[in-house]
Amino acid sequence: MGRKMIKCAASDLVSVSSTSDAPAQSDDYKEKGRDVLKSEASMEYLCKLPPHRYEAAYSKDIPETITGDAFLEKYGDHDDMVTVIDPKRSYSVKAPTRHPIYENFRVETFKALLTAANTDEQLSALGELMYQCHYSYNACGLGSDGTDRLVNLVQEMQHRKTPENGGPNLYGAKITGGGSGGSVCVIGKNCLQSAEEIAEIQQRYKAATGYQPIVFDGSSPGAGKFGYLKIRRRLIITK
């Protein structure tokens, strides 16, 4: 829904910019502005929209929620062949619209930070991005009590350590996929203290819920060492 709203708003802005006679803007500037708007009017994925463009041009007009009938009346359809809009239902719009826009920025920032020097400041920034990812995902209504509990326990561990007593060993956590019911990825220092704190989180979670979470640690060289399978589709034509 949010993508359709933004595309329609961009189309309207293209029309306005074509008839605008604002003297403060050069013809070259206005032409480039129209090119940006045209690109946004044909946008396929929200993650392609930079956060600054969302905030500058569209954020204030995206509602928190909208009913299905109100959306259909104004926009006709949401250009999605998989899902159907229920006219009687109320849909959250703003949070699911913001999430892919800012999530893409966070992922690109995380990727860039991985090339920085290995410092506490780097870990702190990486961890903050993970927390932001987690809570943005939750705002879309996609989280769970179990993963929230684990992330909160990581935060408790992180903030109980001060520079005077050695500083934190764990720096961030977020919900992640592949867990068949919920997994949390945690970032921290590669040291014994981190492993001990993870074990403490595991036991505290069990004490609170009766379930002991499984810990996956370490990594592997993956396809770089073991290779990969390439699957090709075979088309068989029969007469």
Score class of each variant (00 low, 15 high):
Asn104Ala: 11
Met43Arg: 09
Tyr91Ala: 14
Thr19Gln: 12
His134Gln: 09
Gly218Asp: 15
Ser92Cys: 12
Gly172Asn: 01
Gly224Trp: 12
Ser180Thr: 08
Gly143Thr: 08
Ser15Thr: 04
Asn190Glu: 12
Ser144Met: 14
Ala125Pro: 00
Glu108Phe: 09
Ala223Met: 09
Ser11Ile: 04
Thr147Val: 09
Gln122Arg: 13
Asp80Asn: 12
Ser183Pro: 02
Lys94Asp: 05
Tyr91His: 10
Val93Lys: 01
Cys185Pro: 00
Met43Lys: 03
Phe105Leu: 07
Leu37Asn: 01
Ala24Tyr: 09
Gly179Met: 10
Met157Tyr: 01
Ile66Pro: 00
Lys94Asn: 07
Pro51Lys: 02
Val186Asn: 00
Ala208Gln: 08
Gly182Ser: 05
Ser20Tyr: 04
Thr162Ile: 12
Ser144Arg: 09
Thr238Arg: 09
Ile214Tyr: 08
Asn165His: 06
Asn169Glu: 07
Cys140Met: 05
Asp79Glu: 10
Ser219Pro: 01
Gly167Val: 03
Lys4Asp: 02
Arg106Gly: 06
Gly224Met: 12
Gly166Glu: 13
Thr119Phe: 10
Ala208Lys: 08
Ser92Tyr: 03
Asn118Trp: 03
Asp69Pro: 00
Gly76His: 04
Gly224Ser: 13
Asn118Val: 10
Leu72Ile: 10
Lys94Val: 03
Ile231Glu: 11
Cys47Ser: 11
Glu44Trp: 10
Arg204Asp: 04
His159Tyr: 14
Leu123Trp: 01
Cys8Thr: 10
Ile62Trp: 03
Phe226Ile: 11
Gly68Tyr: 09
Pro168Asp: 01
Lys4Gly: 01
Ile62Asn: 02
Pro168Val: 06
Ala112Gln: 06
Gln158Asn: 11
Ala57Gly: 04
Lys60His: 08
His52Asp: 03
Lys230Gln: 14
Arg233Phe: 06
Gly182Asn: 04
Thr147Arg: 00
Lys206Val: 07
Cys47Lys: 03
Ile201Asp: 01
Ser15Ile: 02
Gly33Leu: 14
Val215Cys: 12
Tyr171Lys: 02
Leu153Pro: 00
Gln158Ser: 05
Val186Gln: 00
Glu164Ala: 14
Ile237Met: 14
Asp61Thr: 07
Gly210His: 10
Ser124Met: 05
Lys225Cys: 09
Tyr102Ser: 11
Ala9Gly: 07
Thr115Gln: 12
Gly141Glu: 06
Glu200His: 12
Met1Thr: 05
Tyr102Arg: 13
Ser17Arg: 12
Cys140His: 01
Asp148Ser: 11
Leu129Asn: 00
Leu72Ala: 08
Leu123His: 01
Ser136Met: 09
Met81Ala: 11
Gly227Lys: 13
His134Lys: 07
Met5Lys: 02
Ala112Leu: 03
Gln25Leu: 15
Glu128Thr: 13
Gln155Ser: 13
Lys74Leu: 12
Pro213Val: 05
Ala208Gly: 08
Ser20His: 10
Glu197Gln: 13
Thr65Gln: 08
Glu200Arg: 15
Ser39Phe: 07
Ala173Lys: 00
Gly143Arg: 02
Pro100Met: 14
